[in-house]
Design a binder for these strands. Sequence first.
DNA 1: GCCAAAGCCG
DNA 2: CGGCTTTGGC
Lengths: 257, 257
Amino acid sequence: MKIATYNINGVNGHLPILLKWLKESQPDIVCLQELKAPQEKFPIKEITEAGYNAVWKGQKSWNGVAILSKGYDITEVQDSLPGDDEDVQSRYLEVIIEKIVICCLYIPNGNPYPGEKYEYKLSWLNRLKKRADELLDLDIPAILIGDFNIIPTPSDVYKPEKYKNDALFTEEVRKSFEGLVNSGWKDSLRSLNPDKEIYTFWDYMFKAYNRNAGMRIDHILLSPYLESRLENVGVDKEVRGWEKTSDHAPTWIKLED
Amino acid sequence: MKIATYNINGVNGHLPILLKWLKESQPDIVCLQELKAPQEKFPIKEITEAGYNAVWKGQKSWNGVAILSKGYDITEVQDSLPGDDEDVQSRYLEVIIEKIVICCLYIPNGNPYPGEKYEYKLSWLNRLKKRADELLDLDIPAILIGDFNIIPTPSDVYKPEKYKNDALFTEEVRKSFEGLVNSGWKDSLRSLNPDKEIYTFWDYMFKAYNRNAGMRIDHILLSPYLESRLENVGVDKEVRGWEKTSDHAPTWIKLED
DNA sequence: GCCAAAGCCG
DNA sequence: CGGCTTTGGC
């Protein structure tokens, strides 16, 4: 079973890209972030025609997450991250597919640092840790997957020194990621490639992709129950080179069936 | 010599359309309207690569006119319509190419009628008549060409009764066009096709092109000196059917060399 | 850089 | 309906 995450940066603006990638890559499950579309403008028709069913949580202009599945039933569990009823941003979707809990995340970017947006990111990460702990306690197959907006280590960005005061790379935020890993969540891409350069995002600006000025911020974390099923991982880097594409590349794992 | 007018409705937004049409149609001289680009954003590089030299008068957001020539030298005479120093809209460009005076016009739309914009249209038409008379007095080859925003007769629109109170079809405005014709300017498209339905514009709204709900508002008027050289006329109607196209179709004449 | 929205124009 | 602009986000 192939499970992917893809920050699509506008699901309608980049729909041709999404459909082309789905066709070529044939993932079984896809977590999308940054739909940038209200609930009623999610392109369910085209996605159905591509062979997927879907649940999604839209929002006008920004954010928005979705989970697509080829064939498997999707049971929605949560459409927002527990712990703050005032939080109106569509950044979390939790479902069960084939007895696996799948949490699609779009963690706040947090820039500029310091500031309100950074504080929102920290509180979001706290709420996430609580939910992640709950899932570990249940001792079930579970996945935290999506755009974390966290560069876990200096090896995960082309020039770490440029990101000293960036909300994607502060001590606090990296500790938060480390906390998840230390509590039992496996960083699947890094675990199978301890020393490899892996990037999942290249800025639109200054031709970052041509210079390979990238970073690894999209992650797939596995609960201990799933570790033994991890077969392969990858980033579809070439998709980032397509015309009129997202600034992220699709990132995926394969689990033994 | 093939001379065309084309309201491109955004020279950058519709640049691929313009280049495709130039390649297929191979006009010698092209008058463009509605560049919708400031002077410095005119795509001179791509137009040069297509084999044309050009003069243009840009403006941010609206209006803007240009004259392109394949091979022939262009001598700029005027970059605004004489008679009102306060008029800052880029709607007029007068050049000499191969001893022909070519006046590229983008006459104000004038809607809503009545109102300030309509009054501006009338005063613009008055100034144009003066300039047109001057050119006739010179007794030289001259062309008034462009988007006139005038439907000359009921035969020039799909449903004349719908345009009774439209600034493109008022008595005054039609009389103004008639005044030019009566003073000696030849309506080239109509003169070679007295009874044919000729449209040059179809609204984007309500699938006007599919319903052929069009009108003839782009015109090419010849000074008496040029009448004998008129060989052929046409509208490249199919261009209006292309994807992501302008709402006007290119309109052209052929003169004997 | 590039997305989406809202407002202006025709 | 579909340009262009501005704003806001990343």
